[in-house]
Every structure is written in C-alpha cells, then in structure tokens.
Design a protein around this nucleic acid. Structure first.
Lengths: 125, 125
DNA sequence: TTCGAATATCCCTTTACGGGAATATTCGGT
DNA sequence: ACCGAATATTCCCGTAAAGGGATATTCGAA
C-alpha cells in the first residue's frame, strides 16, 4: 500500500503508469470496433434501451447485447434496470482517464521532438 | 466540396463525424494491444530504432517490426531511415484527433445526463 | 400461473490477430 | 562484388473475437 494519496489527483485509483496502460489497452479494445464505437457515439444523446440501440443502429438484438456487455466490462457504460428494459448510459470515468492518459503526450503538440541530439544518440560509436 | 474552410480549425481533414469514428476505430485498434501500448509509451522519450525498442521492451525483432507497422498504418508513428537503422517516432496528429474526439464527450464530465425526462421518454405509452 | 415483450446467453462457424521461427531485403563498409 | 548488421516479410499455428441463429431468462400484466 504505497503512495495511496501520493498525487491526490481526482479519483486516482492508485495505479502505476504501467497498470494505467493495461487499463487503457482494455478500454481501447472496447472502442476498437465499429459497432461499439457507434453505440458509444449514440449514447452521447442520453441513456437508451437495448432495443432502441439495436433499432437505430440496425443491429440485431443479440449483437447489441454482446457489444454492450463488452462496453460494460470495459467500464464504458453502465446499466440501470427498469421493468423489462435495461437502460445503458455512458460512464464519464473512462473518458476522464483517457484525458489523463492523453495529457502524458501533450508535449508532442508543441515540440514534437525536433531536437536532434536525442536522434543522434542512436548512432553507434 | 463543401465547407473546406468552414471552421478554420487546425488541420481539419474535412471528415464527417461518422468518418471520424471510423478513423478512431482504427486508431484505438492500434493501441488496444499491450506491446504496442508499451511501444507508444516508450517512444514518448524520443525516437528509437527497432532494435532498441525490441531490446528495451524484451520483444523479438520481428514482433517489434510488426507492431511498428500496425502503429504506422494507424498513423501513430512515422519512420525515418538512417543507414541501416530505421528510427520510429510518435506523430502528434492522432493524439490531437483523440483530443478532438474526446471533446465531443466532455459534457459527460459535468452533467452526466442527470435529467430524467430523457430517461422517462423511453417508457412506452 | 400463464403469456408476451425485452434482454441475455449459448452454440457454431468464420475470420482476424498475435507469437514463433525462418527467410528475404537493404545498406554501409571493405 | 561480398559480408554482416539491421530490419522487413512470410508461413504456420493457436487462440480470441465477431456474426448468425436459436434458446433461456426475467419481469410485468392479466
């Protein structure tokens, strides 16, 4: 139990950078599928039931359920039961995490490693 | 040829939202693999040759080459030949694109669809 | 408790993908 | 022109994942 409150940032789960990468691997995997990407995009408008999702994206109900299950396991969506219907909605956490992950690459925006010394260091002696 | 300079934003490739999603599907696919994620993470420090990447991540050279190829096709990295060596470096574009994509979900941070009217709309009459 | 709507799960087949090992290619040096 | 280092490519194999279809489950209504 090291560094529990180390950074004190937001809802830090106390993960090392490598673990964060693992989590993002799973997150990206969930998004790396056209149908699921469309589901996520659609869910931006608000929570929807499985039937509505399948309907609007012209998916078959079983496929919609399967994709939603994957998204749920990756933490992208959460479900709320209401009678027979199950309403799926986006969870904000993974998007925040992605934002944090991206922040580690933000220096690329500006400098883009234009310095050559790093580059030349790869040359053998 | 509509709206070429429409928004005047950065390097807008003139893609519709659906096309953007397709591109991100590919991008996420490239990142949805532990070794590739580690390669990307490693390349933050600066450009590296294939051998160095394979070395530091304890990958075999062919695997490293394959993963780099996938990353390259997804536009995540670019290569620069120098003698026998090929130096791979991160491209800033995909990260910017991810940032833009994320922006479309930023409202989740704050409100998180707490309004119930959208939710109740799903109820049958 | 029986029925029907909504959803999840199971089985099967096909395909995509990653690892391993061998081989091809490219390039500078001599 | 030849050799060796660095890298890319190919082939094979095993596994994970996705689609299709049928079926199981759950829940409210009557």
């Amino acid at each position: 139990m090291r560094g529990t409150g180390e950074g004190g940032r937001k809802a830090d789960s106390g993960l090392r950078r490598d673990d964060m990468d693992e989590r993002h691997t799973e997150l990206f995997g969930a998004l790396a599928e056209p149908s699921r990407m469309r589901i996520v995009s659609l869910l931006r408008e608000g929570p929807l039931s499985v039937g509505e999702i399948a309907d609007r994206l012209e998916l078959r109900q079983p496929q919609a359920s399967k994709h939603l299950k994957v998204l749920q396991q990756a933490g992208v969506v959460e479900v709320q039961a209401a009678a027979n219907r199950r309403h799926y909605r986006l969870r904000p956490e993974p998007f925040r995490e992605m934002e944090d992950w991206l922040a580690g690459y933000r220096e690329l925006w500006s400098e883009r490693f234009d310095r050559l010394d790093e580059y030349l260091r790869n040359m053998p002696d």
